Amino acid sequence: MATTTRITVTLPTEQVAELKKLTDNISGYVAEAVARQIRHQLLGEELRQYEEEHGAFTEEELAVAHARIFGSSEPGGGATAA
């Protein structure tokens, strides 16, 4: 089991009300949100460092990344307008 530390967090009343509608485990919900934000920030920093060392990503590199993430090389999943 992961070690935990009790802290106090102050949130706007409206956010707390919405959280209570979404979950009975507010601590778990907040912990998941914090973990997701940390991953997001770490990934952003890694991408910035890569671009500093190797230059900006090309359109082709971005298309390949998009395809790997979303399963299509076209933005929007490859759907076309009728």
Rank of each mutant, 00 (worst) to 15 (best):
Q41N: 08
Y50I: 01
F70Y: 15
G44H: 01
A79P: 01
E14H: 09
L22F: 01
L11I: 11
G77R: 11
A35C: 06
S73W: 01
A81R: 14
L22M: 09
N25A: 12
L62D: 08
E45P: 01
G76A: 08
Q49D: 05
G28K: 07
N25F: 07
L43R: 03
A63Q: 13
Y50V: 00
E14C: 00
Q37P: 00
L43I: 06
Y29S: 08
L19D: 07
A81L: 10
T80H: 09
I7N: 04
S27I: 03
G76C: 07
R39I: 12
T10R: 15
A65C: 04
K20M: 10
L19A: 04
T80D: 05
H66P: 03
L43E: 03
G28P: 02
P75L: 09
P75Q: 08
A56W: 06
P75G: 03
E52L: 14
R68K: 15
I7Y: 03
Q41L: 13
T5Y: 08
A63E: 05
R48Q: 10
G78W: 09
E32T: 13
H40V: 04
E60N: 07
A65K: 09
S73I: 11
A33P: 00
K20C: 02
T3C: 04
E59R: 10
A56N: 13
E61Y: 03
V9R: 15
E61K: 14
K21S: 14
I7G: 01
E18Y: 12
H40F: 09
R68D: 13
L47N: 01
A79S: 15
H40Q: 09
I38P: 04
H66W: 11
T13M: 03
S72L: 04
A65R: 14
D24K: 12
V9W: 02
V9D: 01
Y29Q: 13
A35H: 09
E45D: 13
T3L: 09
R6M: 04
K21I: 02
R68F: 08
T10M: 06
A33D: 00
T10V: 11
E60H: 13
T58V: 12
A81K: 10
R6P: 04
A31C: 03
T80V: 12
G55W: 06
A63S: 15
P75H: 00
I7A: 06
I7V: 12
V30H: 02
D24L: 12
G28E: 07
I7K: 15
T80E: 08
T4Q: 08
R39F: 06
A33G: 15
R48G: 00
T23Q: 04
A67W: 05
Q41I: 05
R6L: 13
E53W: 06
T10C: 04
R39G: 03
H54Y: 12
I38N: 09
E61C: 02
A33Y: 03
E51K: 09
A79H: 12
K20E: 13
E59D: 08
G55C: 07
E52K: 10
V9L: 12
Q49F: 01
I38L: 14
K21Q: 14
E59M: 11
V64W: 06
E45G: 01
T3E: 11
E51I: 02
A79Y: 08
M1G: 14
F70T: 14
A81V: 14
Y50Q: 01
R68P: 07
T3F: 02
R68L: 06
T8D: 09
S72N: 13
